[in-house]
């Protein structure tokens, strides 16, 4: 085969492959990874808690450090970002909309560079990374990238974080 034609085919195939890979990566972007199921209450633990106590959580020290006060709130969110991150602003806008809709929802923004211990412990590789936690700091779900607002609403709907706070 003519080498120019062969290279043309290789380049076209490579471009298609990279594009498909990128689309797959982008579909994963912003998807909520749930880490605790609110439906698990009354299970083996039998206690009043509706989430398993061994669920991953943000320590009180971490919550203090980022300044999230969940007193009287049903759920909160910690957004890790950086000053040069454009998608972080999009996530901030989504969170402030949610906080207006739901009184029992609090959120804070923190620079990931200021909270490297948290980032290391929870393997935060990218900004924006968002943690949604219950009042005790148990992680209900996390996302990297810009989440869809309705996905976040659905996550919070399972937590009675409604207007009737």
């Amino acid at each position: 085969m003519d080498p120019v034609l062969l290279r043309l085919l290789l380049v076209v195939a490579g471009v298609a492959l990279v594009t498909l890979l990128g689309l797959a990566l982008r579909r994963r972007d912003g998807r909520i990874v749930a880490s605790a199921t609110p439906e698990s209450d009354g299970g083996a633990s039998g206690g009043g808690a509706d989430t398993a106590d061994d669920a991953p959580r943000l320590d009180a020290s971490h919550l203090d450090a980022v300044g999230l006060d969940t007193d009287g709130a049903a759920a909160g969110a910690v957004l890790l970002g950086s000053p040069t991150c454009a998608p972080c602003d999009a996530v901030k806008a989504i969170l402030s909309d949610l906080a207006q809709e739901r009184e029992a929802f609090r959120w804070v923004y923190a620079d990931a560079a200021d909270h490297l211990d948290l980032a290391r412990e929870h393997r935060v590789l990218r900004v924006p990374t968002l943690f949604v936690v219950d009042a005790e700091g148990r992680i209900l779900g996390r996302t990297s990238g810009v989440p869809r607002p309705d996905d976040l609403r659905q996550l919070l709907d399972g937590r009675d974080v409604d207007l009737a706070a």
């Binding site: 990279v18 594009t19 890979l21 990128g22 689309l23 990566l25 982008r26 950086s82 560079a113 590789l125």
Partner: peptide, 29 residues
């Protein structure tokens, strides 16, 4: 370079930009 440019042009994913954020975090840390 071609692969990374295609990735940015077709899907908006900028690998170099992500590397900058990682590098900045390491440096500040």
């Amino acid at each position: 370079v071609l692969a990374l440019s295609v990735l940015l042009a077709t899907t908006g994913l900028c690998v170099g930009c992500e590397l900058y954020l990682v590098g900045q975090r390491l440096r500040q840390g």
